[in-house]
Design a protein around this nucleic acid. Sequence first.
RNA 1: GCCCCCAUAGCUCAGUGGAUAGAGCGCCGGCCUCCGGAGCCGGGUGCGCAGGUUCGAGUCCUGCUGGGGGUACCA
Length: 621
Amino acid sequence: MPDLELEFALALARAARELGVEEDLPAAVEPSALETAGDLSSPIAFRLAKVLRRPPASIAEELARRLEPPRHTAEVTVTGGGYVNLRIEMATYASEVVASALGWGEVVAERHDPGPKVVVEHTATNPNKAAHVGHLRNACIGDTVARLLRSQGQRVEVQNYIDDTGVQVADVLVGIRELGLSPADGEPFDRFCSRCYVEVFRRYEAEPRLLELRRDTLRQIEGRRGEVARAAKELTSQIVDAHLRTMARAGVGYDLLTWESDILELGFLGRALDLMEEMGVTVRVSSGALAGCLVLPMTEGETDPETGEAKVLIKSDGLATYTAKDIAYHLWKFGLLGLDFRYHPWAPGGPATSSAQAGDDDLDPTSFGRAGRVVNVIDQRQSAPQKVVREALRRLGHEPQADQLFHLAYEVVALSPRAAAALGVETEPGRTMYALSGRHGIEVGADDLLDAAVRLVRPKARDQRTAEVLAASAVRYYLLRFGLNSIINFDFDEALRTSGDTGVYLQYAHARACGILRRVEPVEADPGPFRLAPEGRRLVKQIAAFPRAAAEAAGSLSPSSLAGYTFELATAFNDYYEHTDRLYRVEDPSLRAQGRQLVDALRATLARSLQLLGLEPLERI
RNA sequence: GCCCCCAUAGCUCAGUGGAUAGAGCGCCGGCCUCCGGAGCCGGGUGCGCAGGUUCGAGUCCUGCUGGGGGUACCA
């Protein structure tokens, strides 16, 4: 399909060169803010005014005169004291747009170069309790980012890091093994663990001596051998299964599960520490507050942690911090460690998993890791440790990799006062948000939210499966439509709304298009030049904008921008639908063929857009 | 203390230096349903404050105010 924005921009740049402009000014072109002015507009004359020392209006006039208009140009005008505008010849342009839309493939980008492999890490929910809505936001963002990158032809491997040797696992084990807590009848295991986690923290506060049990348990988990370590593996495996089921409900999947315990077991951490010692980037502290710790000084070349800040990698009790393991993990991600996991399928039809043991069903180790670029979807609160990981890579001499390590930071999900009150939190006047807290049981379970959404839409859905897809669409779209820098002030009514800017609205628009296509037989007649009312023109332009919208969302790793595009696409269609004649009543074969093709093009574009957002397009509701 | 993020309509949020700052929700009124209203149309003197840069600032810079987060031998 012709990228008119690009072609117009290039034509303007050529015309500018004829005017004697040497430097490559970005010839900005965007959809016209004023529909009366045209379809595309450029303020380039304003920028040239300075260089050419002439009024913008006269430059714009000359640009317009010299411009070699791209195909499908109806007219070029100058307005507003210097804007150069292009009006599109819709009669021919619409045919091309429609044809392209019916041919959208897996890869949406026109020109693409697969480039280096991208590893996207997301979810990484502690495997000791049920996933809550904050974890679900992470997973939806990460999953959509992976889909967006793939839509641009990039090779992507999605990893879910399982932090199975952390202290949170020890907490739940204390509850089960030491306090004798057990699931109630019919209580899902992950939910039981959430409850257990809360209970254990209550007991810690009442009986601080229980913290001894926690330390012991953690030490035994880290020891990798013995009954407690086996119990930990059993517990975390069950929770991981629960998380995979929860995330699958929202359309989220993974290529590989990477287990922290394997990083320890296979000597990744040891190798990483050796490398850092060889390069002289770590320091063993002998005195002061950090005595006995192995640290990474935060100022390069600083060897005295007393005088500067330092990140502890190995604690004085000999146990590694999370950041130390993360450094080892990232060396592996980039293929810089010289070690590999073993790999085998986690479950039939599921992702692969790392493993410390060889097995009959081992997968090709060279097909995992070895990234040229890494995107970590981790909430904004972990920015500091993410910087440490990048800095460690840099100091180890891996500057290019450090530059290709992106922390995709996003803000957390908090509770609106209404939601907090609904969960039994004591609210205070004037306070607008309340943090989630797994250890205090203040949270919205991901499954609970999805269940609530299913109950809500079930009465109007044709069957249970449709209701589940609709529910997932509502929840997933809600979590994606906010910019990453926005804290989601979670509200049940907002999350479960089905009208307006929602996933359900998008699904309804798609189903409506499918309904029309079922009702109106394909027309054999040649549609000929398109005759379109304003609503039809807007719809064609919005369809044509899809590749650019996907590319921009992928380039800026911004699911919310694609969500915005998709909503506008659905809105353009509903507007068109309301303001054109019922297609089945249209007698003119050419108009009927045009109408059907346009609806079909919309259907294809909306479907592809929904897929990128991770919503399964519904043909009927 | 230092670092990061946020502040736009009653509420929740878009807005990539460009024309008259937009959506959704809620409220009022109307239309109607090729999918069964989860739809469409109309109703709007809002960019926290003060400077600065620019032909042009919601957008960039500085300061301030208010809110959130980080600054662990937690993750």
